[in-house]
Structures are given as structure tokens and as C-alpha cells.
Amino acid sequence: MEYQSARKRRSTTGTLHARRLPTLIAPGVEAEALLRSTLDALSAHIAVLDETGTIIAVNRAWRTFAHASGYADENHGVGINYLAVCEGAAPLSKEAARTAQALREIMAGACSEFRMEYPCRSPQGPRWFQIRVTRPDQAQICRIVIAHEDITEVKRTQQELARLSGRLMHLQDEERRAIARELHDTTAQNLLAITLNASRLHGQLCDAGEPVHRILKETLELAEQSLQEVRTLSYLLHPPLLDDVGLTAALSWLARGFSERSGIRVDISIENSGEPLPRPIATALYRVAQEALSNVHRHSGSKQARLALSRKDDIVRLDIVDGGIGFKALPHANGDDAQLIGVGISGMRLRLEQLGGQLEIHSSPLGTRVSASFTIGSCYADGCPPNDLSKMPSSEL
């Protein structure tokens, strides 16, 4: 943006400063040379503006970037009013509008720093850039520093990490589903057979003494207890209701079981759930409900909670609300509890973001609300987000 629009907005006085760096620190040739060499050593594209928003100095990286971007002027933007350039491009670029607004606020002293990341297309292909606008507090003369950096490699690394994390979560869910099926179809059936055999022995050993009957009775009780625990574990790992009937039935089962085990009353509200939902979305919402209810039991101190599932148009939303103490009171808890909560929230947020969803958490001393939402069309079937660099909007900033 600064290079294509700048030619039409050259300041009549700016060329006087084209070859001279402004005095930002103590005057003197040595200080100016030191500052010049320091700025030239930076990899970021640096421009220094005066109090009107005019560029009065640039570093070597800025000049190189200007040349690579096709800006042929020998002054590389020195003398251009950067604020005017941003304002001129604002109707066509939201990034330019945000930068112009930030510049005006910084020049007025309303704030001292602005940072923004944005995608654009360049002669080298799709790129990501970061712009920082700062006003040094210690400067005797009003100066504003623009730092412009290419962060494409950082973004690519972040996106690749996100894809790997999404793939890992997808594989984890598949593994849970396989373990749950194995527990239900094999281990639970074996325990059921043990229970039946123990019952038959108990009935046939009528003439046995009291010690034998006591041992058989204890064995039967242990087998029934183990069977129940295995079934519960299997359902918690992956409830078959989620695949066979849908999210509504799975959440209802989860809430009832949670209430029985914890003593916390859970009110369920399901309105126009619009089932069936895509399996990745249904699984993610179920996991969020699991983690949120677990936090209610372990940390909130609330004796009741509310679980609500609703759908409006293409947006499905899950809310878990409690009347507990909220997260602000948790620093009084031990470090392990705080760490568990942090990991749980991060896991919920990452799981939703990998599928194109959103997680919102509002907490106060009156309670906590965890909200998970999806736009159905934004779901990524394999749990991996697409490469954003392949779909960048065009921008000149």
C-alpha cells in the first residue's frame, strides 16, 4: 500500500530529509552513525515518521523491501506521508483503515503502541506480515516508528503445528473409540460370564459351609462391580450412543451419570439440535461437556449446573453453566489444580479451533459459563484446518 499509493502523495518538504536520519537520541555524528547502523542491522523494515505522519528515515531492510516490491523511487518512501497513504487506501483495505486509526491515536497521545498481523499477496506469492507502530516515550521530539516484518515462515510453522495437533486429536478419538469397543465387546462380556458362573456356583453349592458361601458372594460382588466400572469407562471413553443415536442422547446420558456420581444436579435443555451433526462436531461438543462438568465437580463448589444445546440456522451451540466460585477464586487453590484447569481449557479450545469452532468462557464469583459453538459449514472433516496461505486476500499494506 505504501509503495503504490505513495507516488501521488509526496510531501514538498520531505525530500530535504531524504539523506539524513532524524536525531532521536543525543545529537552528534557518532550517535547518529550508531543509530543508523543499529537500524540497518535489524531484519524488520523500519520507517521513522515525524509528528505529521511523514516518513523521514528508513533502514536498509525497508529500502530492500521497497525495491523488491517494485517501488522505484530513489528515496524509498522518505518524504511520503504514511498516514495519508493509509487513509487513502482505507476504503479498499480494512488493514489500512485500522493502521490509519492507530496512527491518529498514537499521534494524539491516546496510546503508544499498535500491532497487527495481516495476509497479502506479493511478487513472491502469498505472505503474512506484521506491523508495529510505536511512539518512544523517552524521545524529546515526537517520533513514530513503523516496524514491518515478514512472518510468513512463522505462520506456516504455526499452521503446520495446528494441522499436526488436529490430526493427533482425530487419531486420539479413533483410538478411544476402538478401546471403548474392545472393553464393551470383550472385557465386559468376560466379566459378565464370570458373574453368571459365580451365581451358578452359589446356587449349586447348597451343602457348602458358610466360608465357601461368603467367598462366592464376595467374588460375585467384585465381578459385578468390575463389570459396572468397565462399562462406565467404556462409555466415558466413547459412548456408543454418540454414533448410534446422536449427541442429544449422549449428552443426556452423560448428565445423568454425572449427577449420580457427583451429587450435582444437572438441568438439561435441548432445543432444535438439528441432529444428526457431523461426527467431528458431535465428538468435540461431547468432550467439551465432559471437561466442563468435570471442572464443575472438582473446582466450582456449585451444587447444580445447567447444560444447554441449541441450534439456529447453521450454528450449533453448547452451554455449560454453574453457580460456583468462578476462576478468579482459583489462585487460592494449589498449583496442581490451577495447572489442570489451564490444560483442560487449552485442550477444549484447541479441539474446537481445529474444527473451525469457538470456545468462550465467562467467569465471575457468581459462576462460570462455558460456551462452544460451531458453524456447520466450517467443520473440517479430518480435524485439520486448511492452509490459510493458499486463500489469502490481496492487500497492499
Rank of each mutant, 00 (worst) to 15 (best):
G109F: 06
V78G: 01
L171D: 13
T99W: 01
A308G: 08
Q4S: 11
S112P: 00
R163L: 03
E210P: 03
S112E: 14
G324K: 03
P126Y: 07
T134M: 11
S294Q: 11
E32G: 09
P393F: 07
T13Q: 12
V85I: 12
H76E: 05
E74M: 06
S373Y: 00
H202F: 10
I56Q: 06
A90P: 06
A26H: 09
L318K: 03
A333Y: 09
E229A: 13
N295I: 00
Y3Q: 11
D322H: 05
A178G: 03
T99I: 14
L247I: 08
L340K: 13
R115W: 04
I325V: 15
A308I: 06
A96Q: 04
A18V: 12
V288W: 00
D150H: 05
G70W: 09
D73C: 03
L42E: 08
W253A: 15
L42M: 15
V266Q: 00
K94L: 13
A89M: 11
S371L: 04
N59S: 07
I25Q: 10
V230F: 05
R177M: 12
Q304E: 06
A305I: 00
S165K: 11
L359T: 04
R351A: 10
S364G: 08
V370N: 01
I270P: 05
S269M: 09
S112Y: 07
Y3C: 09
E260S: 13
R200F: 07
M392C: 13
L293P: 02
T12R: 14
I131Y: 01
N75Q: 10
R231M: 11
R19K: 13
A255C: 15
R279P: 05
I106M: 06
S69K: 04
A255F: 01
L242T: 04
L359S: 03
E221C: 08
L247N: 07
R104T: 06
I56H: 02
E221W: 07
S69A: 15
Q225N: 10
A72M: 07
A223Q: 02
T152I: 07
I46F: 07
R121S: 14
R214I: 08
G274C: 08
A178H: 11
M169R: 15
Y71H: 15
L183E: 05
E218F: 04
C206V: 14
Q304C: 02
A188H: 09
D173N: 14
E174K: 10
C86T: 05
N75E: 11
S373I: 00
H362Q: 13
R369G: 01
E229I: 04
M107K: 08
L164A: 14
